[in-house]
Design a protein around this nucleic acid. Structure first.
Lengths: 208, 208, 208, 208
DNA sequence: GATGAATGAGCATTCATTCAT
DNA sequence: GATGAATGAATGCTCATTCAT
C-alpha cells in the first residue's frame, strides 16, 4: 500500500484544556530541539516523543502525523515573522522606504535566530510544501505587501504594485533564507540586510 | 551499520576508461529521471540502478554512496550554470550592467528548465550541503563575480567590490531558485528576472 | 495515510532460479508453521522470516506484502484440491454419482489435513478475499462442476445444470470447511462426508 | 502487557440496573455499526466507544475486552436465529419436512440481512471461536434439531437421529453462511435455500 | 461511576550497503 | 568487473488496556 505524496496535516484535536496546550507546546519544543540537533532526516516521531518525555502514542494524540508537527512549526514561524514584518511595513511613523529598510533588517535577523532549526525545517519543506495552509500563508503575505505598496508606490497602477510586491517579498524571503542558511556572522547578516533593503529601495524609487 | 552524519562523497574511482565514463553518465541520467519522476524522498539507489539498467553493485562501483550521486548532479549543474553566467559577465562586448541584466535573465531561465529535477535536487540538499566540494563551488563563483565587479565598480575598494559581488550572487541565486521552485509561467519568470536585474543595477549604480 | 482495503498481492518476482524457488518454498513452509502455531492474528512477516531462517528484507524480495504470502498459500491449496476433485469428477470409470460420493469424501479428508493451518488461513480470508485471483479460482471450479453435470444430469437444461453445479460446489465446500474447522475425529468426518455425498446424490436423482 | 491467546470474554458485570442495560445496548449497537462500516480489521474499542457516544473507560466497565463485545454480538445473533428456526421446526401445524423447508428459507434470509456486519463478525470469529459460550450454543442448537428429528425420523434410532440432526444443522448453517457471504441477489438466495431444503428432505426421506 | 489521556509493544515495510558468486 | 540476493536497523503509526482525576 502506498502513502499519499502529501499527507493531511490538519490537527487531530484542538487542545482546549490546559494540559493539552502544555503537551502540544512540549512536543513542539522537543521537535525544535530534535530538528536542530539531529537534522531533518533524523527527525522521527520516536525521537520527538522521547525528547518531549512522552510516549509516541501521546504524540499521535495531538498530531495526526509527523508532517503535522513540522507544518505546525513552520506555521508558527510564519505567523510570528509575518506579524513582525507586517507591523513594521504598516508603521506610519516612518517613511515607506525606511520601513522597508527596517523590515528587511528585522526579517534577516529573525531568520538567523535558531538557524539549525530553520535549516532543518526548510529541509522538511517537501513534507508540507503542498499543504493548503501554506498557500494561505502566501496569500496573507501578499496582501500585506500590497498594502505597503499603496504607500510606497502611490502613483503606480495596481498591476505595477502587485508586481513590485511580489518581487519585494520574493527577494526578501529568498535572500534572507539563503543568508541565514549560510550561517554567516551577525555583522555580515546585518550588512547584507542593509544592502538588500537599499537594493529594494533603489528599485522602488526607480519604478515609482 | 551506523551512518555518518555527513557522508564522504568524493568519488570512489576516477572513470578514466571509456566504459566507466559511459556508465557514470548512464547513472547520472537515470538519477535525473528518478529525481524528476519520484522526487527526492523516493530517490533510492535501487531505483537509479534499475532505470540505468545496471545492478546496484555496479552503481556502487562508481559512486561510494547515494549522496555522491546527488552531489555530482548538483556539481554538474553548477559547472554548467557557472560557465554560462561567467561567460556572460565577462563578455566585453556589452556594458557591465547590461551583462548583468542578461546574466540574470539567462540564469533564471536555466533554473526553470527541468524544474521537477531541480526542486528534487534542492530537497536533497541535506545530503551534499556540507561537502567540501560545495564550498569550492562557492569560491569559484565568488572569483567570477569579483572579476565582474572590477569593471562594474571601477572606483570601489576591494572590500566594497567583494561585498557587492557577494550580494549580487546571493541575491541572484536565491531569487532565481525561489522563482524556479514556485513553478511560475515563463513570462512571469522573465519579468522577475528583468526586475531582479534592474534592482541589482540600481544598487550598483547607487554604490558605484 | 491510509492503506488500501485490499492490497495488491501479485508476486514481486518470479523465482526462476533454483535458489529463489527454494527460498519461496522455505517462506511458504515457514508461513504454514507460523499460521498453525500462532494463528492468523499472530501471523507477522517478522515471525515468518524468523521461522524461515531469513531476514525480513529477503522475505520482501519474494513477496510484496504479507497478504501475498497468505494468498499464495490459499492458491496452492486451491490448486491442489481443485486438481484432486476435478480428477475424481472426471473419472469415466465410475458412475457420475459414485464419483461425486468419492469426491466429497476426498475433499473432506483433504480439508481436514493441516487443520490448524487451514483455520488460520480461513481467518486470513479478509486479506485475499477480494483479490482477482480468488475470482478466477471460483470460475475454474464452476467450469469443472458444469462439466460433471453434463454427465450427472444428461437431460437437464443448461440453466438447471448450472444451478445444480453451483449448489453442489457451494454445499460441498461450505460443509467441508465447517466440518474441518470443528476439528472432529476422522471417523466422524468420513461419516459426514458420506452423508453429504448421499444428500447431494439424492438431490441430483430427484432433479434429474 | 502480553495478551492471552484466547481472552476471557465472560462479562465483567451483570447489567442489572436499567442504565447499565441501556449502555450495553448502546455499545452493541455501536459495535454493529462499526463492524458494518469499517470491517473487522478496523473494529477498535475506541471507535466503538466513539460511535456509542461514551468513553473507552465506560466501555471497559461493561465488557472486559474487545472480544467480549464481538462474542456478545454473535451470541445475540445466535439466540435470535435459534429462536426463529426453533420455532419453525417445532411448528406442529406443518409436516416435519415442510417445516424444514420453511426453516432453511427463513435461515438463509436472516443470514443475508445485514450482510456486511455478518461478514465482519465472521472475520472476527478468531476472537470468540474458542469461548465456552460458543460450545453452549452448539449444544442448544443440537437439542433443538434432535427434537425435530423425533418427528422427522420417527422410526430411526437415537444414534441415527443424532447424526441426521448434526448433518442438518451443519449443512444448513454452513451453506447459509457461505451463500450470505457471497452477497448474492435475494432471488438466488431463495433458490439456493429451496434447493438446500429439498436436498435435506431428500436425504431424510431416503434415511427415514 | 465516568472519563479520556497515556502507554508502549507491536507491526508492515523500506532501503543503503555489502559480498559471495 | 558485474551481479543482485541478503541484511536488519530504522520508521511511521495503531490500538488494547489502564488508571489518575
Amino acid at each position: 500500500m502506498k502513502k499519499r505524496q502529501t499527507p493531511i496535516i490538519s490537527e487531530r484535536k484542538q487542545p482546549r484544556q490546559e494540559r493539552s496546550t502544555l503537551l502540544v507546546a512540549a512536543i513542539l519544543e522537543a521537535a525544535v530541539r530534535v530538528l536542530a540537533r539531529d537534522g531533518a532526516r533524523r527527525f522521527t516521531t520516536a525521537r520527538v516523543a522521547d525528547v518531549a518525555g512522552i510516549s509516541v502514542g501521546s504524540l499521535y494524540q495531538y498530531f495526526p502525523n509527523k508532517e503535522a508537527i513540522l507544518f505546525r512549526l513552520q506555521a508558527d514561524e510564519w505567523e510570528q515573522t509575518g506579524g513582525l514584518i507586517g507591523g513594521i511595513l504598516a508603521d506610519a511613523s516612518l517613511a515607506p522606504l525606511d520601513r522597508l529598510r527596517v523590515a528587511v533588517k528585522a526579517f534577516f535577523r529573525s531568520e538567523c535566530e535558531e538557524r539549525d532549526m530553520r535549516v532543518a525545517l526548510d529541509d522538511a519543506a517537501p513534507y508540507y510544501r503542498d499543504a493548503p495552509e501554506t498557500a494561505e500563508h502566501r496569500k496573507a503575505v501578499t496582501q500585506m505587501a500590497l498594502q505597503f505598496m499603496k504607500e510606497a508606490l502611490p502613483n503606480a497602477s495596481n498591476k505595477q504594485r502587485a508586481f513590485a510586491a511580489d518581487l519585494m517579498m520574493t527577494a526578501m524571503s529568498a535572500i534572507g533564507k539563503t543568508v541565514s542558511e549560510q550561517g554567516r556572522p551577525a555583522a555580515e547578516v546585518d550588512a547584507l540586510a542593509a544592502a538588500t533593503g537599499e537594493m529594494l529601495c533603489a528599485y522602488l524609487e526607480r519604478v515609482g
